[in-house]
Simulated scan of single mutants.
Amino acid sequence: MAVTASLSCIRLPLSPTTQHFPSHSLSLSSSFTLNPLQTHLQLRLQPFRSAKSTLPIIRMSMEAGVGVMATKLGMMSYFEPEGKVVPVTVVGFREGNIVTQVKTEATDGYSAVQVGYRRVRDRKLTKPEMGHLEKAGTIPMRHLQEFRLVSVDGFEPNQKLVFEELFKEGDLVDVSGITIGKGFQGGIKRHNFRRGLMTHGSKSHRALGSIGAGTTPGHVYKGKKMPGRMGGTKTKIRKLKIVKIDNDLRVVMIKGAVPGKPGNLLRITPAKIVGKNIPKN
């Protein structure tokens, strides 16, 4: 119920659970229409509105440019024109690398390009996934990944990304993927520990050994390097050189090794070089 009053000061008591906040006053110099409940809520929320948030702002890292997804085919030796032998990884492309969504600051709060890769049958996807792809007018695709950019100008849904238009021979790229899973392994293979003596009566050959004192600290510290599951994690190899782009075979040769076994999904993006394509700060 609204009441009309002419007050010089209104002071509302705080509940027992919020006594640590100071009491608040509201000075009024003229007649006004006041809803007691609304005024009470406004005064109670005033400390939270005026206090500055001290929480850190977490932002995702920006890519140096839009990238593509590809499939690892294997490794081979490549002979350069001057006769030098270079170990390369052959990367192929299946149908896809089509823009499925363009995210902007106005719609999503950040700028990114979502890309789809590897065509599959309709029954392999759920109805929400099919609806998302049909909205963009693209074919059914298995993998969707985002490339967060500073600007998304020039990108539109159902736009096909061609590797040779984004990269050229000699460029440096960052390649990420899932490493080969090796199962449960010991300390020697997993962390490159040294083995014990094999002679002189030693009974500790490949065992881990002491992992901490019993009295102090009385427990094993977190993060101690011990036997456990090895591999099967996402890894990025930075600044690999593109040696050859073969448009006829639709393959790319990248110098060095990349994560995963043949058939593994790879994410290829322009290499981040401080001061060149990303700022120094």
Rank of each mutant, 00 (worst) to 15 (best):
G131N: 14
P16T: 04
G177I: 06
D246L: 04
I139E: 02
R49G: 07
E95K: 13
V120G: 02
K261H: 10
Y78Q: 10
R190W: 05
R59F: 05
L43E: 10
V252A: 07
L265N: 11
R11H: 05
T4E: 02
G177V: 06
R118F: 12
K182M: 11
R49E: 11
G187T: 09
T17D: 15
G209L: 05
R118Q: 12
N281S: 12
Q185V: 13
R94N: 12
T18N: 12
K241R: 15
V68G: 01
K160P: 01
K189G: 10
L172Q: 10
G196A: 10
L12I: 15
N247V: 10
V68E: 00
H205T: 08
N264D: 10
E165W: 01
D246T: 03
L34S: 06
S29D: 11
P13H: 08
E169Y: 03
T18P: 00
R229Q: 13
S31D: 11
R44G: 04
K168M: 09
L197W: 05
E156L: 07
H191L: 04
S176G: 14
T269S: 11
M69W: 00
K225I: 02
E80Y: 01
P279C: 03
M60Y: 06
Q185I: 06
M1D: 14
E95I: 09
T54S: 15
F147G: 01
L45C: 11
G275N: 09
L12P: 08
I178P: 00
E146W: 02
I178M: 15
L34Y: 03
L144Y: 03
M253T: 00
M230L: 15
H40R: 14
H40D: 13
P22D: 14
N247P: 00
D246V: 08
R190F: 07
V162P: 00
R190D: 03
G223L: 01
H205W: 10
A213Q: 07
K52T: 13
F184D: 08
K189E: 14
